[in-house]
Design a protein around this nucleic acid. Structure first.
Lengths: 150, 150
DNA sequence: TATTGTTATACTCTATAACTATA
DNA sequence: TATAGTTATAGAGTATAACAATA
């Protein structure tokens, strides 16, 4: 048992957000250890599935990671055969991303499981509290304009 | 302006926690860029200040990082002259951590500024919402036993 | 035998800058 | 000139395993 406690931190939003983040991550991995990829990777595939032809740079903006890093992520996905990258027809600089058939199978094969997972409230919360919590967090994320990613 | 939106993710607790975490971090750094250390480093010093003689391993448990990594953190703090590490009197294996005079000056010189910062609600929230949010997050972090760190 | 801390090492995430091709 | 993507590289943060000293 851990006896240490730091009042100055325990009552702090930043610290509690970090703890919640760790908990959420652990919880997700317990349920989805069989999919062979991280939450982040799966989330990117999901975003592509919902937005076929999305630009690679718009994905980077949405997930708040640098273009240079998204570049590596997408190349890895492409090499795993999960996405296809075509030169955009309207803009020769841009890459339009699509799920391959294999990518679609992976993403949509998990949709039901994922939807069930998200309907369960997080550990320690009831359904109402979960809704409240998401609403409060969205106020923060929508508040200030997102810091520039690049 | 970013046109991309992924309903399956935007309404998700895990995704919103990540966004909130990034926002909190950015917000903190804007206010405390002058202290020359990260939130994490400052938090560790604060924990030592509130718990003089705390064991290095208990700090690791509290912050949910590995002993091996806390070892590096504390050695760096020691070399910067901010903490002192004494062999525990009651347990020859353990190290008891104390703030040096310099460490105390740094930590307690920022206490007022920090306390004022934490009384301001996060961007997008009013005071009530901030309190609610912290309470909900604490429910999660207290819910399941913390995943074993080591 | 189990625990505390250390070291070495590796892997992921993230950040910066220089480059190309296109707009 | 500015933007989209790439590459190389460096820095955090985190994970594992083997080890010495102590309990």
């Amino acid at each position: 048992m851990n006896t240490l406690s730091v009042a100055q931190l325990d009552e702090t939003l930043g610290f509690q957000v970090r703890l919640a983040q760790l908990k959420m991550f652990e919880h997700f991995n317990q349920h989805f250890s069989h999919i062979g990829m991280s939450v982040g990777e799966y989330s990117v595939l999901l975003a592509v599935g919902e937005n076929p032809g999305v630009r690679q740079g718009d994905l980077a903006k949405y997930f708040l990671i640098k273009r240079s890093n998204m570049s590596k992520v997408m190349r890895a996905m492409e090499q795993r055969g999960l996405v296809e990258r075509r030169e955009s027809e309207s803009d020769g600089r841009a890459l339009a991303i699509y799920l391959t058939t294999e990518g679609q199978d992976l993403v949509y094969g998990l949709i039901d499981e994922l939807s069930a997972y998200h309907q369960e409230p997080a550990p320690g919360l009831n359904a109402n509290e979960q809704i409240q919590l998401v609403a409060l967090l969205k106020k923060i994320s929508l508040a200030a304009k997102p810091g520039p990613v690049d």
